[in-house]
Design a protein around this nucleic acid. Sequence first.
DNA 1: CTTGACCCTATACTTGGTATAGAGTTTACA
DNA 2: TGTAAACTCTATACCAAGTATAGGGTCAAG
Lengths: 139, 139
Amino acid sequence: MKIGALSTKTGLSIQAIRFYERKALLSAPERTQSNYRSYSDVALKQLMFIKQCRALDMTIEEISLVLQARANPDNSCAEVNATIDKHIADIEHRVDELKALQSTLISMRSSCTIDTKIKECGVLHKLDNIVEMQATYKK
Amino acid sequence: MKIGALSTKTGLSIQAIRFYERKALLSAPERTQSNYRSYSDVALKQLMFIKQCRALDMTIEEISLVLQARANPDNSCAEVNATIDKHIADIEHRVDELKALQSTLISMRSSCTIDTKIKECGVLHKLDNIVEMQATYKK
DNA sequence: CTTGACCCTATACTTGGTATAGAGTTTACA
DNA sequence: TGTAAACTCTATACCAAGTATAGGGTCAAG
């Protein structure tokens, strides 16, 4: 299977597949005589797993951890669980932050219900005046 | 006021201030004879406004729109309101997505309550099997 | 035999900054 | 007055998680 077929089957872009290879999430495949990547079904499964993890918003690094763990079937899965737990906590944190932002925005927005002029706009006045800053989290 | 003092007063890093200048959110200040940036209190207010907008998770582009609008006090504030409304909707969308992710993760995690071996780990099995993909939104 | 579809590598771009190198300037203190 | 510390300057590289492009090579059909 060449990269185009793999891309179609997985729904991932060709560049994304090459990107995962560079990031070592996917091991480098065999090459044809003309230097084309040639994949087996193992690669397909691996990519679907990666896609699944990405759909769960896991970072490349987190996925890398889980993949490494998965490669050693007799090891404990404590690390995998810790990775997932941390990820769940991260998402919860982000949701809380976004909700706080949203309520600030909504209350701000409610101060200008009819469109008026800039200089009288309640939204802009509030933007000028809000003192309490909301922390921003980068994930 | 030199850039260091402005950085202290605003709580923004020096690099961030120069970054906002490059992005044209902040107009280029006067320079001293030795080419140091020299700021007035107007710049301080502008930066606090920008900081406030960033704390509300607005993008540079959104802030740029709002700043442009703000520069014309007699124009309608409809655009500002539209920007804020879209931003609120974006956040709501993201919150919904993250909640969906979280419940998937939590249900997955619950399938491996005692740490066991990788090959028996319910979390990994679920990761292998979940078919329904969750859409990811990039904001 | 040439056109189109595919593949290759390498590089630049995105967002919102942060971190560095290597240089010049100003301030404090002895 | 000297000099060392603290400050500033520009330019560049880096982060995540890819996307987009340039400029080439390869393959199958008509």
